[in-house]
Amino acid sequence: MNIRVILGLVQRYSLLFVRNPVRGFELVFWPAMELLVWGFLTMFIQKQTTGDFALFIRFLIGATIFWDVLFRAQMGVAISFLEDMWTRNLLNLFAAPIRLREYLAATACMGLLRVTVVVVVMSLLALGLYAFNLFDLEWSLVPFFALLMVFGFSLGMISISLILRWGQAAESLAWAVPFMIQPFSAVFYSVDTLPKVMQHVAWCLPSTYVFEGMREIVRTGAMDWNSLWIAAGINIGFLFISGAIFYWMFSNARKLGLLTKIATQ
């Protein structure tokens, strides 16, 4: 790993935000809108019904923020690659002395940067609008966020692999990857809401453990470390599998001439 190369790549991607304020705005626009819509929706439901929604609204706000951690981490990886594809820069990049793992590390850093910005903005909004203090979760945030980011990173590698294989036609698919696991991850509801079959799938995803764990903490204040360890194990499995898929697709793209094709089309 050459740190200078990674920094060069991170500079390449982050300069886009510095140069173009619209991009920075866009980065926080969608998460903010999500938070507003979901938050006000629950407040509305609360007014219309008699039940106690205090806990529910906390679940939902927490879930919205947590989901964005996963989603932005995935985007950091996928968008960086798309950025190079859109600007027809892939050939110059991969003809430079860059190792694939350096490239991946740089995109992971972009994911981290995106997550940081989005979480700061969302947690401030949540505090201001709904008196939801994300940092009430204290130290449990660290393992939760780490798990979600690593999983997002794996999904990002899958997204790039799809584009490497099917070119621009797979672009929308690359965006959709996190949403394929969203219903199974029990983001906005507890796992037992799901049909039995789906529950089995749910427990194979590290994200499920995080969202369940988050709700548990909000409800009882207790952290289930055991399930976190399981999640970590599954996460590492996913990381290896998606890494292997990525390396394989890249090598395949070099073999079939797909890399030069998507780079120049």
């Binding site: 920094l7 060069g8 390449r12 600007t87 002395p97 780079a263």
Partner: peptide, 21 residues
């Protein structure tokens, strides 16, 4: 093969200097 078309000339050259060590 282009250089990133949304960066300036100067930014591009700096980025690629880094990439080439």
């Amino acid at each position: 093969a282009n250089l990133p078309n949304n960066l300036t000339v100067w930014q591009n050259l700096r980025v690629f200097s880094r990439l080439y060590g």
